[in-house]
Amino acid sequence: MASTGFELLQVSLPQLAAGALQTLSISALGIFFATVGGVLYGVLANLGKRPVNIALQVYLELFRAIPVLVWLYLVFFGLPIFFGLSIPSFWCAVLVLGLWGASEVGEVVRGALRSLPRGQREAGLSIGLSGWQLYGYVLLPQALKRMTPPTINLYTRIIKTSSLAVLIGVVEVIKAGQQIIERTYESVLIYGALLLFFFFVCYPLSAASRVLERRWAHT
């Protein structure tokens, strides 16, 4: 049994690998857009402009109140119907994960920036820094330390949530596994492999977060 299981894994490996590549690509792109968008959100939220804050609040609540799954359906099925805009399912998943992640990262960045002493901003301005320089050299580097642990936690959630993409037809790693199971009935083995896959992708991230947190505790 063990040897046949091993053989089976070997045979199915290319199929699983293709799925894994989809999962990793969607996750990586989602994380990228979540980070870029989140930093933008956090900085905008700190400008203290009322219309901007209202817009961000609406955006945040929409992504907090509506499940990611519903967003996937809305974008995948809704955009072609209402706007005649058809996006491939892979990019739908990236878009939804990116937008959802950006709202979450954005709140983290906003909080981290707000927690900095107000004097940092004034000291930066008083030596003539521009807004960009103020955020780039003074505020964001100091906020980074505070925002890293919750942001990395979110990255692992994005990776795990990316499996929802299967529902709009992306053959990511779980779907690939299920296809193999349908053929072979080796559910325990395949789900075991999937378990290990997600663990070995997500665990290093949490470990890195802990290492960074410890290293920065002294600075």
């Binding site: 002493p117 004097g119 000291a123 008083s126 030596i127 003539g128 100091q142 600075t219």
Partner: peptide, 21 residues
């Protein structure tokens, strides 16, 4: 252009506000 003005008029604060990083 306040950035210009601030280069000509330096300011020191009660709580120093050095950049900690």
């Amino acid at each position: 252009d306040w950035r210009q003005v601030r280069q000509r008029v330096g300011m020191v604060f009660q709580s120093y506000h050095l950049f900690g990083h």
